[in-house]
């Protein structure tokens, strides 16, 4: 387990910035109440075995007592490095993204299932969408009752969505809650 170096930090932050925009500041600066310490500490990012963890400092401090081979996880895993060296956000980052999301899409109840099976979000599935989404922005997907379901990348801007064919893809799937079942072993 080690802190991220310069390059890794920029990669991770760029990825997060796509989803949360200026709220990235909140993610970094939020006081943490996790851990046994009475005074609230900060959150920090750690790299361990190709995975990036988001954890409070007090827990990280205590995790140093565990040997590297025995440590499975610390805090919340938010993403991992692929074999090709790219960084991907994983579904565990969802709650972090959802609470700070800038661009949101709400799905109609009948099409929630389709998304949770790992499909893209179609125009017909959208119950609601925030304005000013540009293609390429990170989008967090919610159910109509405000439960975060997953996230993805916008394929079309909000303006384009209006005239779009009902079967066209609006959000490209990246991660969804269904992965907890489908890819239990990988996570």
């Amino acid at each position: 387990m080690r802190p991220l170096d310069e390059k890794e930090t920029t990669v991770v932050f760029e990825k997060l910035f796509k989803f949360v925009g200026n709220n990235l500041k909140n993610i970094v600066e939020n006081p943490s109440h996790e851990g046994p310490d009475s005074t609230p500490g900060r959150y920090c990012f750690r790299l361990h075995k190709n995975k990036i963890y988001y954890s409070s400092e007090s827990i990280v401090k205590r995790a140093t007592n565990v040997s590297r081979s025995n440590l499975v996880s610390v805090g919340t895993c938010i993403g991992k490095y692929t074999h090709a060296g790219n960084f991907h956000l994983t579904v565990q980052a969802l709650s972090l993204l959802a609470s700070n999301a800038k661009h949101k899409v709400w799905l109609k109840p009948q099409s929630e299932m389709g998304f949770l099976y790992g499909n893209h979000v179609l125009k017909s599935a959208i119950g609601r969408i925030t304005e000013n989404i540009a293609p390429g922005d990170g989008v967090v997907v919610f159910s109509m009752s405000d439960v975060p379901l997953g996230f993805g990348v916008a394929a079309k801007s909000t303006q384009d969505c209006r005239k779009l064919d009902p079967n066209a893809i609006v959000v490209l799937h990246q991660a969804d809650l269904g992965e907890y079942l489908r890819m239990e072993d990988d996570l």
């Binding site: 800038k102 709400w106 119950g127 969408i129 925030t130 304005e131 000013n132």
Partner: peptide, 15 residues
Amino acid sequence: VMRNNLDALNVDLQD
């Protein structure tokens, strides 16, 4: 403006 131009798309004006 947004409400009158819905066109079956419910846009959330967050800002």
